[in-house]
Amino acid sequence: MYRTSNQAYGSGVVTRNKEQMNQKPQDVDPIRIGIENIGNTCYINSMLQCLFNTPAISTAMKSYRDNKNSSELFKQFYKIWFSIQAEIEPEHNDIIQFKKLMNQHREFDNFNQQDCIEFFHVFLDIVNTAFLTQPFFGQLTYQINCQSCNNSSKQTEQFINLSIYIQQACKLSQLIYDYFKPEQLASQEKCRKCQKTSPLTRRTNLSASPMVLVIQLKRYDQRQARSNYAIEIEQSLVLKGFCDQSPQYKLYAVINHQGYTIYSGHYTCLIKGKNCWYNFNDQRVSEYSNKVVDEELQKSQNSYVLFYQRQ
């Protein structure tokens, strides 16, 4: 899992403003304007389309006024969004400038294919703008128990996406359940209470559910070998058994990836509209029927990043 740090994203407390808390998925179609690929930038284009169509972000962007304290990267992000809102394809120079500003992070200082979830993290880190990051913030609580004396300790950690390995063909809900099930840690540390070196058990709890739940399906291992297991992507999720509440989520966007490694191939994204789905493939935007997408999500081999809106 990619970890967030308090230093990178501001306050260590998960907070929501009232306007963001009231945001619900919009019952409208996304604006069907693509973004030019200027050289292996499909990973950026796909993620930008998902961000532009995240309800809390699109609402905040519409009321945004130029702020001299905003980062240059955010201002360029706004220019691209503004063009799309005006139903005009973003200008080539604006896209070039956005990429140049991303180049300040050395990992993106090239025109190689990159991982869209790494771009997601680095982009949010650089812009450091609350209304962009807050919708994705959640919190995990880890409870570690000593099996000798049952002494327990807790620690919390923020996240902006869950990263889940695929080890079998199954439903997404099964992968999530396995992610949160108790695990035995291979630790040789002594228990602070009983001073015995004994197995430790860790339980993970979703102690603060994000407004937007982002799930990365990790199809590649450390050797970049790809898992082609078909996963059934449920469009509705209810998180029970490992959460302080039982939040309900609806799927509204999917980033698909085709390729032998995460650093090659091609990224596209699907965005849910009022009566159908739309496939964004760089500059090309196509309409897909609900039936076609429903069938694709039943046995998905290319889904990589999923966006769910809390209901």
Rank of each mutant, 00 (worst) to 15 (best):
S153V: 13
M211D: 05
Y304K: 09
K75A: 00
H257F: 14
F280G: 07
H105T: 02
G138M: 08
N103G: 08
I57D: 03
Q97N: 13
N150L: 11
S236L: 00
K68N: 12
S209T: 00
A230F: 02
F82N: 14
L175C: 08
Y78L: 04
D29N: 14
D294M: 06
D109G: 02
S70M: 07
L172F: 09
N145Y: 05
W81Y: 15
D125S: 11
Y304H: 11
R3F: 09
P55G: 05
S303C: 11
L124Q: 00
C146H: 11
F131D: 05
N290K: 01
E296A: 10
Y308H: 08
N17H: 03
K18G: 05
F131L: 08
F74A: 04
T129F: 01
E107A: 10
P135Q: 03
V214N: 10
S5I: 02
S173H: 08
R310E: 15
S11G: 10
Q85M: 13
A169G: 11
A225D: 11
N103R: 04
Y260C: 00
D294F: 04
C149Y: 10
G259I: 07
V122I: 10
K181E: 12
C116I: 08
L206K: 05
I262D: 03
E232S: 02
H105K: 09
K193N: 14
Q216S: 15
S58Q: 08
F120A: 04
F82E: 15
P90L: 10
Q85Y: 07
N256D: 04
C149L: 09
S152M: 15
P247N: 14
Q85T: 12
F123C: 10
D244G: 12
K181M: 11
Q49W: 02
M61Q: 09
R203D: 14
L239H: 03
T204H: 06
E118R: 15
C42L: 13
Y9V: 04
K299S: 13
E295F: 09
Q298L: 01
V254P: 04
K218F: 05
Q258E: 09
S286F: 06
W81K: 02
E19H: 11
T129C: 00
S289P: 04
D221R: 05
L200M: 14
